[in-house]
Design a protein around this nucleic acid. Structure first.
Lengths: 236, 236
DNA sequence: CCAAAAGTGTTAGAGATACACCCATGG
DNA sequence: CCATGGGTGTATCTCTAACACTTTTGG
């Protein structure tokens, strides 16, 4: 490695830990932020719940490994994922030294319900504020992931990666309230959301609701790109 | 690993890449933000400049490894360091698969000048806006590290980890201007810095300057803890 | 007395917050 | 006609940004 004295045939002169990726997969359900967990069937921590994860293959990019795990668990491709960081306390896995690179993603929970037992593994969505004890150092990882998620969501228009292409302002507000865990003032929220000029007002409305139908909007990506290039930001 | 079917004696069933830490060590010099680089003497990238780094030992925490590298290079202990994240493109090191966990630190450049050639390695400080081409993917790492540094410095009172215990408001302002790469209005800066109530006005003044001596301040950590607990923040 | 940096307040504008009622629809 | 959520505007306040001159000190 850079700055160290390494010979060509050095491969096993240096330690080679196992490296995994673990994914904090968030979903929204009825105004609750939920997390997808897998119940372990083997030791250590057999029976405990854990973040889905797996080994990084030798020729596989870290992000690709995370996406592979995500897809195996949920069937979802092409969502936004973000790295949380590396976790590597020597004792975090009792079997051997395992360094994990953690990621988070936020997926539409309705479209991807559980898809669990395919692997004979038990999977379930838990509200983030009512989680069971987690295996390994997954509680630490989750806490860091949640901080990262909330920070990112505040500063970048991630909501639109998650919402359907056409959405109501109330859906958008709910998204923020649920992810951030705080309530927002309706009028102020709408004013602000519209003020960036990155939402297109459609000539369509919600259907099938037992009350006045809400107008639909879509995310105007070109406007966002222009705004971003002009040094603009997006925050709620 | 969590969610995967692993047996006890599985050690070499799964890939074991090499894992390193690399450190972006920043220092301030005459209103310039500088970065400590090491000139490589071996292939690959012999002669190129690189971030200091090295292998993570099998029983060593990632942060401990980063601190060890930092201390080897600069002699500095007990400074604030922050993880940037893991970088692991399969091709990033031509010799074998190497995943690196990057960190940044900010040290006092005067107190820790170069200390380089102890290892027969050439080390030097470069202004961050006049860097030579870097080895491996270190340019990527650096760019990410700089973003992380600037974000962190804006939101947390890191300046005081770096400045001497007693400092002038001008020194504080310089710190921010240098790290953030932008100039700040003197009156507004002072007003804001003092508004948090986390600076103690000392009854001492700068000495030995050829102009009016500036008042010294110190960081009042208890006040900061109180403010932080009350949900307060610090931003410039 | 000159050079160099310290120190100090006010104003205007932008953005944030607080707040309550009528409207449209389906059942 | 009722329950449910949709939709709207204003006033206040706080925070930010812009801006220039006098003071102190050492040389």
């Amino acid at each position: 490695m850079p700055g160290t004295e390494i010979e060509g045939r050095y491969s096993y002169q240096y330690p080679h830990p196992a490296v995994t990726v673990d994914c904090a997969i968030f979903g929204l359900d009825e105004d609750k932020l939920k997390l997808l967990l897998i119940q372990r069937d083997l030791e250590p921590f057999a029976g405990s719940w854990a973040l889905p994860g797996g080994f990084v293959r030798m020729d596989e990019d870290l992000e690709a490994a995370a996406r592979r795990e995500l897809e195996e668990e949920t069937g979802v491709r092409k969502v936004f994922i973000e790295q949380v960081g590396a976790f590597g306390k020597p004792s975090r896995d009792p079997r051997e030294r395992v360094i994990t690179v953690a990621w988070w993603a936020i997926v539409n929970l309705y479209e991807h319900p559980v898809k669990a037992d395919t692997d004979a593994r038990n999977a379930a969505w838990f509200p983030v504020d009512e989680l069971p004890p987690l295996a390994f150092d997954h509680r630490d990882i989750l806490d860091t992931a949640l901080g990262s998620l909330r920070g990112k969501v505040r500063r970048e228009p991630l909501a639109f990666e998650f919402l359907p292409r056409k959405f109501t302002l109330t859906q958008l507000q709910r998204f923020y309230e649920t992810v951030l865990g705080e309530t927002l003032d309706k009028r102020n929220f709408r004013k602000k959301a519209l003020s960036y000029g990155i939402l297109s007002e459609l000539k369509e409305y919600e259907i099938g609701v037992a009350h006045r139908a809400a107008r639909l909007y879509s995310f105007d990506k070109p406007s966002w790109n222009r705004l971003r290039k002009a040094g603009g930001s997006f925050s709620v």
